[in-house]
Amino acid sequence: MSLIKTVDLVKIYQLDGVEVPALRGVSIEIEEGEYVSIMGPSGSGKSTLMHILGCLDRPTSGQYFLERQDVSLLDEDSLAEIRKRKIGFVFQSFNLLPRITNLENVELPMTYAGVPSKERRRRALELLEKVGLKHRAYHRPTEISGGEAQRVAIARALANNPRIILADEPTGNLDTKTGEEIMNLFEELHSEGRTIIVVTHDPEVSERTKRIIRIRDGKIVE
């Protein structure tokens, strides 16, 4: 069985008593070590799909198997546990905590995973070195450029050594050149065997991935 498998995912939002379907039966499979993009215009349901794949949300109906476990049935605490151990998020707007240093931002997922502080520090520095930002470890996210912030965010996503990296428009707030650097970083991670899912509407981004899943009006197009 694949690393990720969804069966007929349906998500319906209630907006002022009106049912708004965001996903209308999405079935996908992603193998371990794949580098996939989920592509679609805004309003296509790709964000909803990403939230469900990232265990931030649960489907209204349908099933989602992550490592053969049906996570659509899990409670919130168990979902948090999965987010912590198995998934690393990279957001369009970086979502780093501005008050603490880059190093502490990278440490954040590990603090919730109960990693001892010395180990945390060591691993966070290692990860910052990996993304080429060791010299920025003790700066705050507000003191670095967007490209650097996104690399800190990637280091944070890798903190608990998750099997899946979920990136939501990771280059959306960056200029072309830095965007490319970020994509290079993803490629590098992919070559190390990590599963990477990039959600985007930008064809230039999706072209660099190995497989493109297109979504439109809450359905997979091909």
């Binding site: 931030l56 948090a80 546990e81 987010r83 954040l108 903190a159």
Partner: peptide, 16 residues
């Protein structure tokens, strides 16, 4: 609010 969202995304439980 956003900080809370970020913390939850990286694995904080409601209890945390």
């Amino acid at each position: 609010t956003r900080e809370i969202g970020i913390r939850m995304a990286v694995g904080a439980k409601r209890r945390d």
